[in-house]
Simulated scan of single mutants.
Amino acid sequence: MENIFSALLRRDQRERAREYIKGLQRTPGRKSIRNIAQHSGDSSAEQNLHHFVNGSTWDWQPVRRALAGVLAEEIGETRAWVGYPLVIPKGGSKSVGVQRRFHPEFGRMVSAQWALGLWMAAESGSAPVNWHMEIPSQTGAGAIVPTLDRASTERTGAIVGSLLAQIDPGESARMLVLDARGLDAGALITQLRHVGAPLYLRVAENYPVEVATRSPTPAWHVASAGAALDLSQRGHYAGAGEPVVYSKAKVRLPNRPRADGDLGLWGLDHGVRGRSGTLWLTDVATVHAGSVLRARRLLDMAAATQDYQLEHLGIRDFSGRSLAGWHRHATLVSVAHTIRSLRSAATARGVLTGSRVRAAGA
């Protein structure tokens, strides 16, 4: 852990970081500062930890960059970026960033904190290395977000680009994976092409695309993504022990310049009875089925890790009006998860050497 917290120049801050992370990992129940302090048995711990998270001056971005460096060394060249939302239901106005918005999965208005995590991911594991929390503005707070909302799309694209630039502007990855259901995926692809990584966006069944008719003369017409795949040829892929029925189509985006080029639309288990199908849009027109399947696995992994491991470490347990406090708490949860994951992987391999010792040592 020493190299991750090398950005903390003061010894007392490094000590508080160790104490807080141990508390996140060992305190039963809700990971509030009070519960962590009570579990530690130190009568002064609550005041010290409260100041460390909410009132101290340490910058979380250098810590996140160091965390990303440790993960990059562990994961290697197979790493990918995954952007995954974090919704933290909250009532009242005593917590930072709470706003009432439409939740597409729930199909109703939800009062919550709305955040986005940037995950470094591979089949061997994943962890969030940067976070953004949306702060409600005077205008639009509480508004229902319609399907393919342009403002939400532009905001999401800007957030993802900013999160990547904050970690390492020169960082390369095999792919960038996002859940774009409810967003204008085509506009998001245009906005994020500068990232330099192939884009894989999960889209909704009703997302509009232009697809070419087969005969006698090819012509483009608008159809839903689901309908476009219903007319496409199916295939089977059994790589990595995960057999899947796939369908694919070359599509364009309605009302977009032809210079934007063709996109690949893929369905994994789309229309297959008894299976949960997903639809994907990618800017790599000649991509292999295995790459699309990998994008689905990495998105599912981030979702499962957030819902179980990060939930257990208290990612939704911060309370207070301090945005800086929330960012520090989210950073420490990310570090606690990474330490636990590295230790588990090292135990399984029977080795713990080099920077992994410094990363995992408390």
Rank of each mutant, 00 (worst) to 15 (best):
A127H: 12
L164W: 07
W119C: 05
R174C: 07
P146D: 15
Q138C: 10
H132Y: 12
S111E: 10
N130V: 06
L163V: 14
G117Y: 00
G182Q: 06
L163I: 13
G182Y: 01
L116Q: 11
W119K: 00
S137Q: 12
L118W: 03
L118G: 02
S162P: 01
R155F: 02
A141D: 13
A180E: 01
T156C: 09
A121G: 10
S162E: 10
S126H: 01
G161P: 00
I135E: 01
A143I: 05
V160Y: 01
T156G: 08
L116C: 07
L178K: 05
M120T: 08
I167T: 14
Q113K: 14
S126A: 15
W119N: 00
E105A: 14
L178G: 02
A141I: 02
R108K: 15
S137V: 00
S126K: 04
H132I: 02
G117E: 06
G125V: 04
G107K: 06
Q113L: 04
S126I: 00
A121K: 12
L176E: 00
D179Q: 03
A173W: 01
G157R: 11
E105P: 00
W114N: 05
S126Y: 04
T147W: 04
T156L: 14
G142S: 07
M133E: 02
A122P: 00
A158Y: 09
A143Q: 15
R108N: 04
R108Q: 08
G182C: 01
A143F: 13
G170M: 11
D168H: 10
S162K: 08
I159W: 06
S111D: 10
E134M: 03
V145A: 15
G125H: 12
A115R: 07
A158K: 11
E154Q: 08
